[in-house]
Design a binder for these strands. Structure first.
Length: 822
RNA sequence: GGGGGCGUAGCCCAAUCGGUAGAGGCAAGGCGCUUAAACCGCCUCCAGUGAGGGUUCGAAUCCCUCCGCCCCUACCA
């Protein structure tokens, strides 16, 4: 491209200046109104790609805009620098994950600076920094002391090809390893958990007040999966000492229970299995043990038939509603870690029970009358109850209540609420993560590492291979230690924490990474939290955002953080992804377009303008063959502004005529429009409005009559101010050229539209006859309804369309429209 | 199977409360500038809103059915 200025020189000049002058540093005692703008801190994967540029452009525009609006804007940046890619790279080429990671951080940071995004770099955090690790571990211990962290057996994902444990994120939807493609197995290990389920209710109910996209809230609600029901006992026939405890949300269908099901891992399976059924049941149990959860929960068509997935135990339980004995099955469609791990099966009103009953020849009883014409199969809807004794005739709600009361009386029933949400398994058998600060002593058991011994850091000389155990466990020097209580021999926990723990509190650290001896100063957190706008990808809609909300709630309850942090992210923006060749642009997909080639040509400004202009920020964008041309078009617009600012080919005159006044009105309408568009994140239309203003100005300024000087100056000033958050370098340069004595464009107050110039002199009133446009009239905006109707009826085309008939009805929406119905 | 989103000009997209379908850009074509081209400037072209039905004086917008694409989720009792 042939640019009218030296893009690289201008952009690097301003980037250095923002850094050197600390333009976007804010202090914790800043008296201005606070604003906290935050992009999700990235995993440092190396130089930025277009997805990063788009993301950080949205954030940067917000920071610069809010700064011009007079706010003290906290704009920090950091790196989610623990994680698997660094460890895998280390295994592959023998480097140390830290060396690898820090090189990637350097690259990404340099890209971010080069695109013109501004941060208070004094506040930068890195998850792998020893000071950060110290406080990640201190929080773990605080959770442990509070009973929020506990140990239990848990299943991990084991890849037989890689001979290693995988994180959940590495297991694809079809149950295979994302690297080797092998089918992932489950193995039992003792693991650490966080008790996020303690907060299930609050995590659910607090969603209501958040300014988040509805779909993200819906996803979180579904993930938490609250359901109300009844827990009760099914006594085992012939065994006074045993009962199968089940949970149901449909106690009203109790008369339709024709069998019961235990999960394969249920503790009663052994006791209830008769000798004759032992082999059949064992087969089901063994199969469940080696099958990963994905396969188990996929529908029967995909894998093994239902006949192979369940077996009769030989025992019966008594249905408390009917008093009849029904068979007990073991089947893998019942999960041990939900509800009570056992169900009453109602094939008449449940699809899964119905499918299973058909295959195993179990009776189906309908207890809710389906509507007329309803065919075969289970009916899960509402309706009058039938075949249900004392529930007959009741609707579902009433029957539920009556049945629950019955179960409370007759079957040790308790109304209860269950959640789909599970406790958070935080152990990872990995090296490149935050070590869990726990010591195991033969005498004293589980012992927290004393706070003065934090951080627990991994030694540098750990061998990372694919043996499948935690790399730290292979390092004798790390493994063996002494017990802080008795001084006797002890060993360290060798697992590290899920990297989602690091990202669950970094935004609190940003408020105050300065105070020694604390994770953060509560007063500083109180000043900055909650985050006003949190910007990131939809892929974090569930896990990261749920975990972070859990952390802040727990930290508030533990007294670490002030109550304002309870809901950390007031508003959330999830930007659309960039797709190339039909898939998301990402390093792991190998379909990256990097920004570097664009910097010397269209510049960071051109690229930023492009990302804002190309479509709504929330929408996905396809990077395709035409994209190059669109990007160049954006750079061209910047060039046009540059030339017009320098009055190239412009004719100016003094003395303002009506056309100039109209241009002044357009300038102020544009100020108003762009401001409202910024506030609703409609950057594409804001840019379009600026282009429209440019077009009108240029046309007038380059016409034979020319333009009034003051009108042009006012319009150009407004345009450069409005463009400043979008194209920060070129606008800073233009502003400094013309106004060397003034402060930078970026600390100028945001322009305000003059209300007097927003009032339109006349508007076009559309006159319709029977919905068809027949005339357009110029009218005063203040026109009254009667006057508007009279004017409409006077219009010749309207009279003609009416053909002399009296209108039967007239709908007037002054001053825009009058619709005459004959 | 369940939940959500999207579908407007050749392409990306506007239309903010149900009220003139077009703001902006890209591409295409033409003219001017130029020895020529690029650049630059000016101008032109193009859809009736995925299909069908309903509500309404009036529907891209609300409702129903269907088609296509995308995302999330998945036996949660």
């Amino acid at each position: 491209m042939n640019r009218p200025f030296d893009v690289t020189a201008v952009e690097t000049k301003w980037q250095s200046r923002w850094l050197d002058e600390g333009t976007y540093q804010v202090d914790n005692d800043d008296p201005r109104e606070r604003y906290y703008a935050l992009c999700m801190y990235p995993y440092p994967s190396g130089a930025a790609h277009q997805g990063h540029i788009r993301n950080y452009t949205f954030g940067d525009v917000l920071v610069r805009y809010q700064t011009m609006r007079g706010r003290a804007v906290l704009s920090p940046f950091g790196f989610d620098s623990f994680g698997l890619p660094a460890e895998n790279a280390a295994i592959k080429d023998g480097s140390h994950p830290r060396v690898f990671t820090e090189a990637r951080i350097k690259e990404l940071k340099s890209s971010v600076i080069r695109m013109g995004a501004v941060y208070d770099w004094r506040r930068e955090v890195r998850s792998h920094d020893p000071e950060y690790i110290r406080w990640s571990q201190a929080i773990f211990l605080a959770f442990y002391e509070a009973g929020l962290a506990y140990r239990a057996d848990g299943a991990v994902n084991w890849c037989p090809g890689c001979l290693t444990v995988l994180a959940n994120e590495q297991v694809l939807a079809d149950g295979t390893c994302e690297r080797s493609g092998d089918t992932v197995e489950r193995r039992l290990l003792e693991q650490w958990y966080f008790k996020i389920t303690d907060y299930a209710d609050e995590l659910l109910s607090d969603l209501d007040g958040l300014g988040w996209p509805e779909r993200v809230k819906t996803m979180q609600r579904n993930w938490i999966g609250r359901s109300e029901g009844v827990e009760f006992d099914l006594p085992v026939q012939g065994r006074d000492d045993l009962a199968v405890r089940v949970f149901t949300t449909r106690p009203d269908t109790g008369f339709g229970v024709t069998y019961a099901v235990l999960a394969p891992e249920h503790p009663l399976v052994e006791a209830l299995t008769t000798e004759a059924q032992r082999a059949a049941v064992a087969e089901i149990v063994e199969r469940a043990a080696v099958t990963n959860e994905i396969d188990r929960t996929s529908s029967s068509e995909a894998g093994v038939g239902l006949d192979k997935r369940g077996a009769f135990t030989g025992s019966h339980v008594v249905n408390p509603f009917t008093g009849e004995a029904v068979p007990v099955y073991v089947a893998d469609y019942v999960l041990v870690n939900y509800g009570t791990g056992a169900i009453m099966a109602v094939p008449g009103e449940d699809q899964r029970d119905y499918d299973f009953a058909l295959v195993h020849g179990l009776p189906v009883v309908r207890t809710v009358a389906p509507p007329e014409g309803f065919g075969e199969g289970p009916y899960t809807g509402d309706g009058p109850h039938i075949n249900s004794g004392f529930l007959d005739g009741l609707d579902t709600a009433a029957a539920k209540d009556r049945a629950a009361a019955f179960l409370e009386r007759e079957a040790n029933g308790v109304r209860s609420v269950k959640y789909r949400l599970r406790d958070w398994l935080v152990s990872r058998q990995r090296f490149w993560g935050c070590p869990i600060p726990i010591i195991y002593c033969e005498r004293d058991g589980v012992v927290p590492v004393p706070e003065d011994q934090l951080p627990v850091l991994a030694p540098d000389d750990v061998v990372m291979d694919r043996s499948g155990q935690s790399p730290l466990a292979t390092h004798e020097g790390f493994l063996h230690t002494t017990c802080p209580i008795c001084g006797g021999p002890a060993r360290r926990e060798t697992d590290t924490m899920d990297t989602f723990t690091d990202s669950s509190w970094y935004f609190l650290r940003f408020a105050d990474p300065f105070t020694p001896g604390r994770a953060f100063d509560p007063a500083a957190v109180a000043q900055w939290m909650p985050v006003d706008f949190y910007i990131g990808g939809i892929e974090h809609a569930i896990l990261h955002l749920m975990y972070a909300r859990f952390y802040t709630k727990a930290l508030v309850d533990l007294g670490w953080a002030p109550g304002v942090a309870r809901e950390p992210f007031q508003r959330l923006f999830t930007q659309g992804m960039i797709r190339l060749g039909g898939t998301k642009m990402s390093k792991s997909k190998g379909n990256l377009v990097t920004p570097e080639p664009y910097f010397p040509t269209v510049g960071a400004d051109g690229l930023r303008l492009f990302h804002l202009f190309v479509g709504p920020p929330a929408d996905d964008f396809d990077w395709d063959a035409q994209t190059e041309e669109v990007i160049e078009g954006c750079a061209r617009f910047i060039d046009r502004v540059w030339r017009l600012w320098h009055h190239e080919d412009v004719k100016v005159h003094d003395g303002c005529d009506e056309v100039d006044v109209e241009l002044r009105r357009l300038t102020h309408r544009t100020i108003d429009k762009v401001t409202r568009d910024f506030d609703r994140w409609s950057y594409n239309t804001a840019v379009a409005a600026l282009m429209e203003l440019y077009n009108a100005l240029s046309r007038r300024a380059r016409s034979a009559e020319g333009i009034e000087r003051a009108t042009l100056d006012e319009a150009l000033d407004a345009m450069v101010l409005l463009l400043a958050p979008i194209a920060p370098h070129v606008t800073a340069e233009l502003w400094e050229e013309r106004y060397p004595e003034r402060a930078s464009v970026h600390v100028q107050p945001w322009p305000v539209a003059d209300p007097a110039l927003l009032v339109e002199e006349s508007v076009t009133m559309v006159v319709q006859v029977n919905g068809k446009v027949r005339a357009r009239l110029e009218v005063a905006p203040s026109i009254g309804e009667a006057e508007a109707v009279a004017a409409a009826l006077r219009a010749p085309a309207v009279a003609a369309a009416l053909g002399g008939h009296e209108p039967s009805r007239v709908v007037a929406r002054v001053p825009r429209l009058v619709n005459v119905i004959p």
